[in-house]
């Protein structure tokens, strides 16, 4: 089946006064139809930048896409579209929801105004039809009394309700791809469970693919089929969700899984050190400073992104050496 979105060799740089620093590198991924694809990583790993690049929303300058292609529905390279063409796709075929629903909604407009805005731009419906579509979508996201809610302002709603409204706005035009950037991070667990449930339901009803960006491996385990683990701007491992949790390959993924506090072993595990800053990126593998299994070569040369098992990619010298020995 043809993928909805295909990212090839994406690289994002930040231009400082004199020098150009690399923040995201070698991103390759494919999102299939009706798939929920997860990107997991700590803060500063470049997961949000990647999603902004897809939407053409990178703050440029200083950020810029310096390499790569992003194909949407097979043939359109999003990076080559004019801003006018991009506006037609954004909010229509690809839409996005953000972490903090309060700052993403305009406090001066009613919920109705904010829902209608995207319909006015993307469709030629009459006012009556638009209103009917809004009521329908609000019901769909599980909010009672839609007519009344539409007259209210964002501050009158709770966090969970606001996130539902965000999702309603994103789903209005029946998008092919929904990018969800930490959609439940600001919410309580019981509300998080409601929202994740809703997203799965919408995926089934609207046949939308979802790109789920999160730092929470629990959210990944709950919702995703495929996962990419990002560290310091690179994808270090990419596979289906079951393999990732049961047969992780990369030392970073292993560490992340072990430091997931909770049901696992009793002793608390933590990855020593912290993510290197952009200015001090190691020359070889970017994880080398914190890796328990680091070797000499890791410091010097960056490993390739290799297929280490069926549908399982990993960027680590441990497996490349194995490969070399086999040959």
């Amino acid at each position: 089946m043809a993928p909805i979105l295909q990212i090839k060799d994406l690289q994002i740089d930040v231009k400082m006064d004199e020098e150009v620093l690399n923040v995201v590198k070698n991103i390759n991924l494919e999102i299939g139809k009706r798939e929920i694809y997860g990107i997991v990583g700590e803060s500063g790993s470049g997961k949000s930048l990647t999603s902004l690049a897809i939407m053409g929303l990178l703050a440029s300058p200083p950020l810029q896409v310096s390499k790569g292609e992003i194909f949407f529905e097979e043939d359109k390279d999003l990076l080559k579209l004019s801003s006018r063409e991009l506006r037609k796709i954004r909010g229509n075929k690809i839409s996005m929801i953000f972490q903090e629903p309060m700052s993403a909604l305009d406090p001066l407009f009613t919920i109705e105004d904010q829902l209608m805005e995207s319909l006015k731009f993307h469709t030629k419906l009459s006012k009556k039809e638009m209103k009917r579509a809004c009521v329908k979508i609000i019901e769909k996201v599980g909010i009672p009394r839609p007519e009344q809610i539409m007259k209210e302002y964002p501050h009158q709603l709770s966090g969970g309700m606001r996130q539902r409204i965000m999702i309603a706005i994103a789903m209005l035009c029946n998008p092919k791809l929904l990018i969800a950037d930490e959609p439940t991070t600001a919410l309580d667990v019981t509300i998080q469970a409601q929202i994740l449930d809703l997203m799965k339901e919408l995926r089934d009803d609207f046949e939308t693919s979802i790109l789920m960006i999160t730092h929470d491996l629990g959210v990944i385990a709950e919702t995703c089929q495929r996962v990419a683990v990002m560290y310091a701007g690179e994808i270090v491992e990419e596979t289906d969700v079951v393999s990732l949790f049961h047969r992780p390959k990369h030392p970073y993924t292993k560490g992340l899984l072990k430091s997931m506090v909770g049901d696992r072993s009793d002793a608390l595990y933590s990855i020593p050190g912290k993510v290197p800053s952009v200015e001090q990126m190691p020359k070889g593998c970017r994880f080398v400073t914190r890796c328990p299994e680091a070797m000499d070569i890791c410091e010097k040369v960056s490993p390739d992104d290799l297929e280490v098992a069926d549908n399982h990619r990993c960027k680590c010298w441990l497996y490349q050496k194995e490969m070399a020995n086999h040959v």
């Binding site: 998080q192 629990g218 385990a221 079951v242």
Partner: peptide, 10 residues
């Protein structure tokens, strides 16, 4: 407790 995400997709 039931709302806490699992740490195992299976």
């Amino acid at each position: 407790l039931s709302a806490v995400p699992t740490s195992d997709p299976l």
